[in-house]
């Protein structure tokens, strides 16, 4: 695995910034372009880059298979749970206005939770798909 020194150091340098950018896209999605779908894909891009440069084992040490697999249903559950929370608190399914003390804040919170669910599912699914293809090739 002693490939190219520059490549490996460069990857190490750039990885945190890609992750940071993914989080920026996620949390700044309310004010600029971005949101859970894009951030999830960028996050899985980190794993792809890691696998290409350092090999599958290194990538799976950072993002273990088991965690990735649990992320997929977890995201859907976060999303649906937000909806059910509204239901339990006496409004319609996916009506966020009961989540906070005033309606606008509650909607912001609801949108945030839902986007987090989308992020977790998309990142998990894309990474799992990538792992599946790579493992098949060995």
């Amino acid at each position: 695995m002693s490939l190219d020194l520059i490549l490996r150091i460069g990857t190490k340098l750039i990885l945190p910034f890609i992750l940071l950018f993914a989080l920026y896209v996620q949390f700044h999605g309310d004010y600029g372009p971005g949101g859970g779908f894009q951030a999830g894909v960028i996050t899985s891009g980190v794993v792809v880059l890691l696998t290409i440069t350092f090999g599958l084992e290194a990538a799976q040490r950072m993002a273990p298979q088991a965690v990735v697999q649990r992320m997929i249903p977890l995201g859907v559950l976060i999303y649906a749970g937000t909806g059910v929370a509204g239901l339990l608190l006496g409004k319609n399914f996916l009506d966020y206005s009961v989540l906070g003390h005033d309606a606008v804040h509650a909607h912001e919170l609801g949108i945030f939770l839902v986007e987090a669910g989308v992020l977790v599912t998309v990142a998990g699914t894309m990474t799992a798909i990538f792992y599946a293809f790579v493992e098949r090739g060995r």
Binding site: F37, G40, V122, I129, A132
Partner: peptide, 17 residues
């Protein structure tokens, strides 16, 4: 379309599998 793109790549991956 935003959601359609992501769903599109997921189904593309399924087809490739």
């Amino acid at each position: 379309i935003l959601t359609a793109i992501v769903v599109g790549v997921a189904t593309l991956a399924l087809g490739l599998a």
